[in-house]
């Protein structure tokens, strides 16, 4: 379903069409839930947040002007709600201060066996600063463009690129450390 189709659904939802809400739910529920649950790692809380997102869409659909893509709009709502959860719970993050000097040699990734890749990657993603992690997750989980990520996270496009650049470097640094691999600089 492309953005024009999604916008047509939002328009119908704005007039109180519940069948259109069903269709939007079926289209967007899984990617939104995945995004939320990756952040919160709590299926029950994630289901509640997902519910709130769709309720916000239901209540706000008539006011949606269509200036952004529907997907971007909905992820923006979800993103803000996740940030609110983090603020309320004062969740701590670690490792914003990993050393920056590292090589970008792809061989570090190549040496990771298939069975270990996911575990190592998950552990290393968890160590990123939230801003960096968000950016790379939007890019690689959700396949968003840098323009879309900028809109969802309300930062300039240049900032998105910078965050992903640093996230990539830090990920490699972490992966190299976990694999105890010496990579030539």
């Amino acid at each position: 379903m492309n953005d024009a189709d999604l916008k047509a659904l939002i328009h119908r939802i704005g007039t109180g069409d519940k069948i259109a809400l069903d269709a939007l739910y079926r289209q967007m529920e899984k990617p939104l839930y995945r995004f939320i649950n990756i952040k919160l790692n709590d299926p029950f809380l994630s289901a509640d947040i997902l519910q709130e997102v769709f309720l916000d869409v239901w209540k706000g659909a008539a006011a949606f002007e269509g200036r952004s893509a529907v997907k971007t709009w909905m992820f923006s709502i979800a993103y803000r709600k996740v940030i609110d959860v983090f603020r309320k719970n004062a969740r701590l993050t670690i490792a914003d201060d990993l050393p920056e000097q590292l090589d970008e040699a792809p061989s570090a990734m190549a040496q990771i066996t298939a069975a270990e890749e996911a575990d190592h990657l998950r552990a290393c993603l968890a160590q990123l600063k939230p801003d960096h992690r968000d950016a790379i997750e939007f890019a690689f989980y959700e396949d968003m463009s840098y323009r879309e990520i900028a809109e969802v996270t309300s930062v300039p496009e240049g900032t998105v690129k910078t965050r992903i650049f640093h996230a990539k470097k830090l990920l490699l640094h972490c992966l190299q450390g976990r694999m105890n691999t010496k990579v030539a600089s």
């Binding site: 704005g14 109180g16 519940k18 809400l21 069903d22 739910y25 079926r26 529920e29 899984k30 839930y33 995945r34 649950n37 299926p43 289901a47 997902l50 519910q51 769709f54 309720l55 239901w58 209540k59 706000g60 659909a61 008539a62 006011a63």
Partner: peptide, 25 residues
């Protein structure tokens, strides 16, 4: 991905929107 709420979540949503008036109706 983990199992999303699916149809049960949709049923819950449909129930909840009865109590959630839209902003412009």
């Amino acid at each position: 991905d983990g199992e999303s709420p699916g149809e049960l979540g949709l049923a819950r949503l449909r129930r909840d929107i009865e109590d959630s008036p839209q902003k412009v109706v």
